[in-house]
């Protein structure tokens, strides 16, 4: 755990740095893959970059709106730089919505694009897992294992590391799947299916969990998401087989 790093008198929040590094790496990879597949790579990276900015602004706006009473007296303080006064859910919604609108305007929002960004998303999630390790968030249950890490006054399962390694593996699988002649949409569904199943396995070792009828909610959601994704992959292939037999039939947009 190393939440802060002091470099030349500057305090750097390492979890944020790891998350941003994952995001930028993912974005670079996605725009590279997109360009290799004949897409507008710049548009892909622009959507990611603008989405990030919109996300940060949305997260701040969400926080200020949620605490309007406090900010009403000093409205200018809403513009103070910093990472504390942010509402993550508002940031996610704003960032994704902005990127979607941008890509729709550019007529780029297709299954093919979602496939192209899937390995990048895996890298971004790996960055978030690294960030969680640095901040000590989403920590594991106590365990005396040769690979246990000492965190929060106990030896624990390094669940953040499990997730990080799994996501690198998933990114590699997705990269390979893009080189195969699979129907559009398979790679992004593989990301959802594999990541969901990873969470089913890994979350068993997380110390904190939201429970539903005695079970971890993330595991239940993970089972449903992984099964649905692989059934959908089967469905996509079946659709492609049908269109192979009827080549004149137009493909359905997203």
């Amino acid at each position: 755990m190393l939440p802060l790093l002091r470099v030349f008198g500057l305090t750097i929040q390492t979890p944020l740095l790891a998350t941003i590094a994952g995001y930028m790496l993912g974005l670079m990879l996605s725009s590279r893959i997109g360009a290799d597949r004949g897409m507008d790579g710049n548009a892909v990276s622009d959507a990611g970059f603008y989405g990030l900015i919109a996300g940060v602004l949305g997260a701040r706006a969400g926080y200020v709106l949620l605490n309007l009473q406090a900010y009403a007296r000093e409205p200018l303080s809403a513009l103070m730089p910093g990472t504390t006064a942010l509402l993550p859910i508002a940031g996610w919604v704003t960032g994704v919505a902005f990127a979607v609108v941008y890509l729709r305007r550019k007529r780029l929002l297709t299954w093919q694009l979602l496939d192209v960004i899937a390995p990048g998303v895996a890298l971004f999630l790996a960055g978030m897992a690294a960030g969680a390790l640095l901040s000590g968030d989403a920590y594991g249950t106590e365990a005396q294992l040769p690979w246990s890490i000492y965190l929060w006054d106990a030896w624990r399962h390094p669940v953040q590391v499990y997730e990080f390694i799994s996501l690198l593996g998933i990114a590699a699988v997705l990269f390979v799947s893009l080189r195969r002649r699979f129907p559009d949409g398979v790679t992004v569904l593989l990301l959802i299916g594999l990541y969901a199943f990873t969470r089913v396995i890994v979350d068993a070792y997380r110390a904190e969990a939201v429970l539903l009828a005695g079970f971890r909610v993330t595991q239940l959601v993970g089972v449903v998401a992984s099964v649905t994704s692989f059934l959908a992959i089967g469905g996509l292939k079946q659709e492609e087989n049908k269109s192979d037999m009827n080549p004149g039939e137009p493909k359905a947009p997203i």
Binding site: Y63, L66, N67, A70, Y71, R73, E74, S77, A78, M80, G82, T84, A85
Partner: peptide, 8 residues
């Protein structure tokens, strides 16, 4: 920290 942040 700003006052609104602390208050929030």
């Amino acid at each position: 920290m700003t006052r609104p942040l602390i208050e929030s």
